[in-house]
Structures are given as C-alpha cells and as structure tokens.
Computed example of a mutant assay.
Amino acid sequence: MMSPDYATQVEAVIATLKQDLPTLFKQDITYDIYTQDIEFIDPVNRFKGKLSYQIIFWTLRFHGQLFFTELYFDLHEVQQTAFDVITAHWTVRGTLRLPWKPQLYFNGYSTYQLTPEGLIYYHQDTWDRSPQAILKQFISW
C-alpha cells in the first residue's frame, strides 16, 4: 500500500519534471528530487552521481546555445507507470547553426526509478533512433 507521504512526494516529483523538462535547454533544472548517487544512462552516456548529472544538463544548455539557433524539448507526457517508476515521453527538435540550417528531430522517453522516499535514483533515456542516425541529420542538405 502506498503511504500518503510517498504519494505526495511522487506527485511533487512529477510536477517538478513537468516544470523543468520543457525548459532544460534554457535554464537549469531542480536537483532536489534526485539522490546524491543518481545514475544516468542514455545511448551515449553512463555515469553516477549528482555532480555528473548537473554537468550533463549544463553541457546540454551550453552546446544547445552554441550550436543551435533553435532547440526545443517538447514534453508530451509525464506519468507514474509503476509504484516506483515515472515515465516521460518527449521530442527534441532544433535548427543547427549551419548555412543549410539542418533540422534535428528525435523522440524518446525517460524512465525514472524512485527510492522508497520518492526520490529519483535512476534515469534512463531511450531514443527512437541511433546516435549515428541523429548525427546524419546534421549533414543532410
């Protein structure tokens, strides 16, 4: 049975993700919903620890502003899909700063696993295409 405190914490985590994710390329996210030893995995990265997690979001913002004229993280849905799992479905799209203005576009989902206290200790991103296929979008004329 879910405790009221846990249910309230999960609702707060979902609300924070809904607030943070759409603007992650423009401003920093809220880190108090994550454990100190948060583990992150996506098709090109794997690391553990809140400092590394903060660095990946800083890097996304830095490279996003440096290499793109437009870059968006379209959040479609965030929901609790199991007692200790939250899933977010999203699309990343943007325009690269090149004369032919190549478009970046891919869909994905994030799976967040929660501790018994309702903090995120594991975040895995899955993309709808390979990193190589995403990079090929940059060189297409």
Rank of each mutant, 00 (worst) to 15 (best):
N45W: 04
I120T: 01
L75V: 10
A133I: 04
W90T: 05
I38S: 01
K48M: 06
A15S: 10
P116I: 07
H89P: 01
T91A: 08
P102A: 03
R129V: 04
G118Q: 08
P102Y: 01
Y121F: 10
L135T: 08
T115Q: 03
F83T: 12
H123C: 01
D128Q: 08
V44W: 03
D32Y: 00
T59Y: 11
F47N: 11
F83K: 13
V44R: 15
G108T: 13
R46Y: 14
F25S: 11
Q79V: 04
T23G: 09
L104R: 07
I120R: 00
P102V: 01
I38G: 02
T30M: 06
T95N: 05
K50P: 01
E11F: 03
R97S: 02
L135H: 05
E117Y: 00
D42C: 12
Q113A: 13
G64M: 09
G49N: 06
Q27S: 12
D42Q: 11
T81G: 07
L96W: 06
H89Y: 12
Q79S: 13
L119I: 05
E11I: 01
A82P: 00
V10L: 00
F106T: 08
K50E: 08
T23R: 10
G64D: 06
I134C: 00
Y34P: 06
K48G: 04
T16L: 10
L119M: 09
D125V: 12
D37I: 05
T95M: 07
F62N: 02
P43Q: 12
D20I: 09
I120D: 04
Q65W: 09
V92D: 03
F62P: 04
V13D: 00
D128A: 01
G108D: 06
T111W: 02
T8W: 00
H63F: 14
T81A: 06
Q103I: 08
Q103D: 11
S110T: 13
I56T: 13
T30I: 05
S110L: 14
D28M: 02
K26V: 04
W90D: 06
D28E: 15
Q113L: 07
W100L: 13
P43F: 05
W90Y: 15
K48S: 09
D74Y: 07
L21C: 06
L114E: 03
F68I: 08
I56C: 12
Q124W: 07
Q65Y: 10
